[in-house]
Design a protein around this nucleic acid. Structure first.
Length: 570
RNA sequence: CGGGGCGUGGCGCAGUUGGUAGCGCGCUUGCUUUGGGAGCAAGAAGCCCCCAGUUCGAGUCUGGGCGCCCCGACCA
């Protein structure tokens, strides 16, 4: 490609809407432009990078035995209604009607479609296992798109779905995908880690996420350096020290206008850990008390698992009044009957607690959980805090912000059962397919690589993802000698099937260097008057050292540098 | 959905007590220049987010919308 003909609209200044480095650099390097909130256009340079990413993904998925197919993004409501997710997805699903007023969705994910495909095939155990994948656009009406290409409403995903006859088969399929993911992210040059994760709306028995540490990440992960325990905070647990409780007679105390944990603890001169937060939630339309220690934070992901439903929310002040007779801040399950009570495990056998008296401006002291209220069930409901002991080895856990790049799920039979997707086993009996699902955010890979690999001048692409591997900079297009040498090299490199860009723009050298650095091309071959006077061209690694050598040897040297970088360690 | 910020040439921004819009970058043309985002000269390019008001007169004041960004909530 000749730069003079290429559409690479670079920007000298940072666009004001961008906050993250990757966002700024993607805009400045002319990779992407925003069309509207959470919707991006990929310009030629950005698209080339995505093509490099998807090529790696395809190679590794194929190597792992998966087969590529292509499913529609437009999908009728019926199959979503069959699994219940027409409702579960709520506002996050883009919905539309056709001319006959039939409901459709723009698919946010494809379990329903793939399962529908599988059930129509009347599979035999002989056909199994199967693993089908696609690289395709997904639509999600995010409440708040942000961070450039990281959280968007329209994005490309590689999604794969495995079908097995039994759990052992699923385990093998899952492991194969996990290994493929490790290879994919490694080849993309990413530093990543794997955490145990919540299955959320997807359902199923277990899942893991592939994470890249980043202060801008939206997920928090608890990681143990000592034993390797790593989990998303949605599911992470810890072994906090067992508190010592002092028992005493239940008593009511006046606490005028003291509503929050801080206010009450300060007023009564007790540590926050001695308070019991009594939260009233509405779950599937029924009130439920959720109890947690005063110094802990309720983890809503864990609460969802405990409640077994996603349809829950904090009760309104009116609902609180109706259930307890008091206002928010002065309630507890003590002396309340007919309301389900769930509590964090740390409150098991807890005594001497302070919580609301169900009477405005009053609290209770010395609440003894075993005596004064009856908890229906204890769960782990609290969020892990930085530095708490690891649940497996006891060493301190570190909380790290991270970006989710991929997520793999053991779905089991959630979709095959609700959609009746079965196979016929050896014994002639139809059984539900045991399924797994595996996703990778394609754009996120590109953004995370930029986050991890850039300097003050711009992107530093690893060779595997670079839109061009080499740029030949002809420093003065009005000098025939330079142009002859540059054109010659360009033709030679292109002929060797190297992705090469010829900077033949009528610009000053500094301008060209800045641009080349900005878009992050790994190797730059500089053809200028200075060099030619000595009979050499210069080959410079992005952000690295320069070698000078005669033009005739340049191609070989470039190939050498490229092959070293493409197969690191070999 | 709560809180905050911002909408003015393609991009980054300025615009005073209300008086008919400007700077830098980019773009076009010419000349000079050519090793880290050149200089000079001449140009083109603006429904000042939209709609209503107030006013002789609104980018500026008032009201109502819409859009975008950030924080939180939410979220494979």
């Amino acid at each position: 490609m000749r730069w003079s003909k290429a559409f690479i609209p670079t920007l000298k200044e940072d666009p004001s809407e961008a906050e993250m480095v990757s966002h700024k650099l993607m805009l400045r390097s002319g990779m992407v432009r925003q069309l509207t909130a959470g919707v991006y256009e990929y310009l030629p340079l950005g698209w080339k990078v995505l093509l490099k990413v998807t090529a790696i993904v395809r190679e590794e998925m194929d190597r792992a035995g998966a087969q590529e197919l292509y499913l529609p993004a437009l999908c009728p409501a019926e199959i979503w209604q069959e699994t219940g997710r027409w409702t579960d997805f709520g506002d996050e699903m883009f919905r539309l009607k056709d001319r006959k007023q039939r409901d459709y969705a723009l698919c946010p994910t494809h379990e329903e479609v793939i399962t529908d495909l599988a059930r129509a095939q009347k599979l035999s155990y002989r056909d199994l296992p199967q693993n089908w994948y696609q690289i395709q656009v997904k639509f999600r009406d995010e409440p708040r798109p942000r961070s450039g290409v990281l959280r968007v409403r329209h994005f490309i995903m590689k999604d794969a779905y495995s079908m097995d006859r039994d759990q052992a088969g699923l385990d093998a399929s899952y492991l194969a995908m996990k290994e493929a993911y490790v290879r994919i992210f490694t080849r993309c040059g990413l530093k990543f880690f794997i955490v145990g994760a919540s299955s959320g709306l997807m359902g199923g028995s277990g899942s893991q996420e592939f994470m890249v540490a980043s202060p801008s990440g939206e997920d928090s992960c608890a990681v143990c350096q000592a034993c390797g325990y790593a989990a998303n905070s949605e599911v992470a647990c810890s072994k906090p020290a067992a508190p010592v409780y002092q028992d005493g007679p239940l008593e009511e105390v006046s606490t005028p206008e003291k509503r929050t944990v801080e206010e009450v603890a300060a007023f009564l001169k007790v540590p926050r850990s001695q308070l019991m937060k009594s939260l009233l939630y509405m779950a599937d339309g029924q009130p439920v008390f959720v109890l947690i220690r005063g110094d802990d934070e309720l983890n809503e992901s864990k609460l969802q698992t405990a409640l077994g439903t996603a349809a829950f929310r904090p009760a309104t002040p009116e609902e609180v009044q109706k259930a307890t007779g008091a206002s928010v801040g002065f309630i507890s399950p003590v002396r309340i009957s007919g309301v389900r009570i769930i509590a964090d495990r740390l409150l098991q056998n807890a005594a001497g607690l302070v919580s609301g008296a169900n009477k405005d401006q009053h609290h209770l002291r010395n609440i003894f959980v075993g005596r004064d209220l009856k908890v229906d069930c204890f769960f782990d409901l609290r969020s892990v805090k930085n530095g708490e002991p690891c649940p497996t080895c006891g060493q301190p856990l570190a909380l790290t912000q991270a970006i989710e790049l991929g997520h793999i799920f053991k779905l089991g039979t959630k979709y095959s059962q609700s959609l009746n997707a079965t196979f016929t086993d050896e014994d002639g009996i139809e059984k539900p397919l045991i399924m797994g699902s595996y996703g990778i955010g394609i754009e996120r890979i590109a953004a995370c690589v930029i986050e991890q690999s850039h300097d003050k001048d711009g992107i530093v692409w690893p060779l595997a993802l670079a839109p061009y591997q080499v740029v030949v900079s002809a420093l003065n297009v009005n000098n025939p000698e330079i142009m002859k040498a540059a054109e010659g090299l360009y033709a030679e490199l292109a002929g060797a099937r190297i992705d090469v860009l010829l900077d033949d723009r009528d610009q000053r050298p500094g301008f060209k260097f800045k641009d080349a650095d900005l878009i992050g091309i790994p190797l730059r071959v500089t053809v200028g008057e200075k060099g030619l006077a000595e009979g050499v061209v210069e080959i410079k690694r992005r952000g690295g050292e320069t070698v000078k050598l005669p033009p005739a040897q340049a191609k070989q040297k470039v190939q050498e540098l490229l092959s070293v970088e493409l197969f690191p360690g070999k």
